[in-house]
Amino acid sequence: MEELPVQISFTVNGVAQRVEVAGDTPLLWVLRDLLDLKGTKYGCGKAACGACTIHVDGEAVRSCSFAVKFAEGKEVTTIEGLSTEGGLHPVQQAWVEEVVPQCGYCQPGFIMATAALLEKIPSPTDQDIDDNIVNVCRCATYYRMRKAIHRAAEIRGQGSEERS
């Protein structure tokens, strides 16, 4: 049985949000249907494909299987919040350079998963990529994605050199 509606407050892409919804509602539906952020996709609803990947306090999370109540007080980032006024995120930039997307449906999930990976491992090896990027892309754009992940690491590296 559904839990009773409760008030939950958290930040989404830097904006404070408060929703009233059953606490066990997957964060995916809150983002998509209540907050109208449609970039985060449904693929399976069972944490098996990664289409719904977002960041909660910087960690990659499969939002279809993450109850909204656990987002209380946390910072949520979706694909819509990844780029900044300054332009595309390095991962998005690399994705453009390598012309990765085909149908595009899985891409936000992969981009979010990659952005989180690069925070942990700034220069991932092929093995790191194989171990950590385990989303599903039916158009099978993996070949370009791998190149784009390495390229994103490069762009990020250049960015941090400039900053330092």
């Binding site: 996709k41 453009v96 997307p101 891409q107």
Partner: peptide, 26 residues
């Protein structure tokens, strides 16, 4: 380069699953 490239890395294209109409039910 694909004409839908930028949109697709921003997550902005509307797929069937994203479509909506005012006052919509499920």
């Amino acid at each position: 380069a694909r004409v839908d490239l930028q949109d697709k890395v921003l997550g902005s294209p509307i797929f069937g699953f994203d479509a909506a109409l005012p006052d919509m039910l499920y």
